[in-house]
Design a protein around this nucleic acid. Sequence first.
DNA 1: CTCGGCCGGATTGTTGACAATTTCGAGGGT
DNA 2: ACCCTCGAAATTGTCAACAATCCGGCCGAG
Lengths: 228, 228
Amino acid sequence: MPRAATRNGRAEERVFNAILDAVLDHRLAPGTKLKERELAEIFGASRAAVRAALTRLGHSLLVELRPNRGAVIANPSVAETREMFEARRVIESAIVQRLARALSAKQIAELRAFVAEESRAYRKGDHKAGQRLSIRFHKVLSELAGNRTLDRFMEHLICRTPLLALARTGRIAYCGADEHREVVEALARRDAAAAARCMTQHLNNVEGELVAEPEPKPESSLAAALTA
Amino acid sequence: MPRAATRNGRAEERVFNAILDAVLDHRLAPGTKLKERELAEIFGASRAAVRAALTRLGHSLLVELRPNRGAVIANPSVAETREMFEARRVIESAIVQRLARALSAKQIAELRAFVAEESRAYRKGDHKAGQRLSIRFHKVLSELAGNRTLDRFMEHLICRTPLLALARTGRIAYCGADEHREVVEALARRDAAAAARCMTQHLNNVEGELVAEPEPKPESSLAAALTA
DNA sequence: CTCGGCCGGATTGTTGACAATTTCGAGGGT
DNA sequence: ACCCTCGAAATTGTCAACAATCCGGCCGAG
């Protein structure tokens, strides 16, 4: 039998994070069915905890909740992909414009260091770490802007982006560090307009990669992907 | 005894909508405690359904979920108020800029009719209807823009605004139809820059009203407010 | 009189069993 | 061969009892 409930307040969190991480790492393909009992077994949690986690994931649009028919990893359409990048252009260009005025010298140095690390990861061929840092770059900017409402929106948008990627292409370099560096340098020059332009262009480029080829996607095994 | 469970699939929805409506109409004051058993009795629903509704409301930031200590109607701070209006300026000015290019003649006519109705409601002294239409105006614009991602964000922001209003001032005219008309007329002229300017100024004005006086707020009775 | 710790009542959190719904394969009719 | 219907198995949805936690008042010590 499954071990009887390790502190359940954290159980929901564990399930939530495991699925979130798996999606961010492209280990769970869109369309994969998430069965409550199966997840409960895997995590040694109660079904209620799993259910709560799935509800949260559903609200973030990472999984699709179909009443009476279970939850599956979301499978965003091309139209949704375009909409999400449109939203990101709106919000992120606003964010960098504000940052261009507000950043301290120390913060600029930190951003440069961040991009350098990202660049290093790619050069070393560590694509997984590189992608993680690339995703995080956008989140860092959003946090620096200091608006928790916009930051929360960005969290939603960012978490969903790898899903878009996986739904469209098998695997992609997502976003390179070079364009990130351009944004940071514009910020360092306090050039709000240029920073916004760089960011918009960057998002255009990423979107362009994603809306290319519509490929079929395989089902993956739950236990293997989640416990990795 | 309370009637035994009328179709519970809808029970969660009923609770959710009742509380949402009550907040939109300023019938539930920030800080009001939402007890699970009490709500379950009022709606003839099970605690599980109530709990699910509260979870959803919590995710929308309309209620604050305090672990082991129950849920209360959220009580946004001044800082949060500013952040939300900042977010609205970013998103709504982008929305109207896009609308200025994309609106059809028919849609412009509909917007004019909408503002006229809103204006009429205020002139007739029907403040409740007026406020409802004022809130809805922003949602209509967001829907017309055709980006469901941004529309979803706007839904969050809009639903929370009356809460900000109630948390800061006792009761306010929130937003008048005149400034809405200015936005629509700018859209009719296809003047994207002017439309964005009008919208930004409008939001500035509303924000200015809200961050004025910090007043204490009374507790209201659940059953009375929700069944009205 | 004030402060700190305890106790009873109330409220939230969790669980497992039970009910309702969907899915999918088998069988029979066209 | 195809499609429709039916039924069993699997899956999700619901509930009410039980456990853990928190709140407010009481009591006693300082």
